[in-house]
Design a binder for these strands. Structure first.
Lengths: 223, 223
DNA sequence: CAAATGTAATAGTAATACTATTATAATTCG
DNA sequence: CGAATTATAATAGTATTACTATTACATTTG
């Protein structure tokens, strides 16, 4: 599957960027290094100036690709959700039993990313950590409704909607499929965060994992 | 209970502020108006300069009370969690049946705040909305571990721990009481946000509510 | 009523986010 | 081939923000 994925390009809403970063070497460098730098210093302290230094280029060159750092964050997180969606669709394809399909989906959404694999210039392990620490900030803004209308969150919403449908397939009677799907997705990011910074607020320590917690939670709730 | 609460002062960790805002009129005005202004323009665009204008005072006067806007946010959210904790402890007191106690606790934590009541200068309805939109930003930072050590999140953690204990009381066998407690608390904020901005991702629309969703989720999971 | 303290205003600085303009390199096409 | 066009990047800014140092004024206290 890893090599298979390499023959695809993840397509991101064109409105998010000024110039497609996948189209040039500098663009790819911007993606590669911004992931490392945002992870290192956090989105608040991240600036295009600092990024310019590490990519050996100028601040203003970055502005050719992204309007501002918020859009860059949207790009990176959209890429991440798109990657997860791809893995989810691929691994649940042709699985006819609704329970099996649902557990595979939960696994895909809640699992910790272990190794950087498919895309040469994107480190998925670190990108996952960025999503854990910064994703909420991309929608907890005053501009969320306009940006939502512009389609900046389509991939994220589609992913939740896929999980929601699998929940309803498994138990058509259940009244909160969308809420449960969004809880699993957002909740797993939160559990990873707690594990790291507020360990007493979670039970997902080795050998336990968010995947086990949420799989049990969903199956018991839907029974 | 409302009048009863008025005879108490909610105590916030002294390290969060430079000078206790409850100790002066200006301090109370800072709290009152910052709640309204942060709600109106969001924490990113909120500045002490803008706050100075609405409280009819100077930017620098605000710095006498809070080091920066991040600390002010920590103060406001700590106050909120403290208020919720008080209501929770009060309403579950003397309830001996573990199931009843648990459902009351979930109700307190997940319910939507309807009216501004107890404290003259603090609007709890709007403060709840600030918590929904801004709370995650107060811990999704690079400084979280130091600030946690300084005790800036004690009330929040104590609240989750209370719920966690009630979960274990109801079902001592359950393996994820803390994870479930943190999911309920964080998840309910998230469901309120979705209801407002991503309505397709939640089922908590009238007459349904996050309280119903989470009460059912917890009881089914613990059965 | 003088000293001490509390409170607030003025006037800054450093850093950040972003932009306008110019320079240089690469490509296209007659 | 070489002029015109376009792509790309660097320079040099500006406006805003977050925060600080200093001074001025007001209030309290012994």
């Amino acid at each position: 599957m890893d090599e298979f994925l390499q023959s695809f390009k993840i397509i991101i809403n064109e409105k998010i960027y000024v110039k497609d970063p996948e189209s040039t070497d500098l663009g790819k460098k911007i993606i590669e290094q911004s992931i490392l730098l945002i992870h290192e210093i956090g989105i608040e302290k991240f600036t295009f100036k600092k990024l310019g230094v590490v990519i050996g280029s100028n601040e203003s060159s970055v502005y050719r690709y992204f309007e501002n750092k918020h859009k860059l964050l949207l790009y990176l997180t959209s890429w991440y959700w798109s990657w997860v969606e791809y893995k989810l669709v691929f691994s649940t394809n042709n699985i006819t039993k609704s329970k099996k399909r649902l557990t595979i989906a939960i696994e895909n959404i809640t699992m910790s990313i272990e190794e950087d694999s498919t895309f040469s210039h994107i480190n998925e392990v670190i990108l996952h950590k960025i999503v854990i620490n910064e994703y909420s900030k991309s929608y907890l803004t005053k501009e969320v409704d306009i940006e939502n209308k512009n389609g900046y969150f389509v991939i994220y919403k589609r992913l939740i909607s896929r999980l929601s449908m699998m929940i309803s397939d498994y138990n058509p009677e259940y009244a909160f499929p969308s809420s449960l799907a969004s809880t699993v997705l957002e909740g797993s990011l939160h559990q990873f965060f707690l594990k790291e910074h507020f360990p007493t607020l979670t039970d997902c320590h080795e050998p336990q994992s968010p995947t086990q917690y949420f799989t049990q939670l969903v199956l018991k709730t839907l029974k």
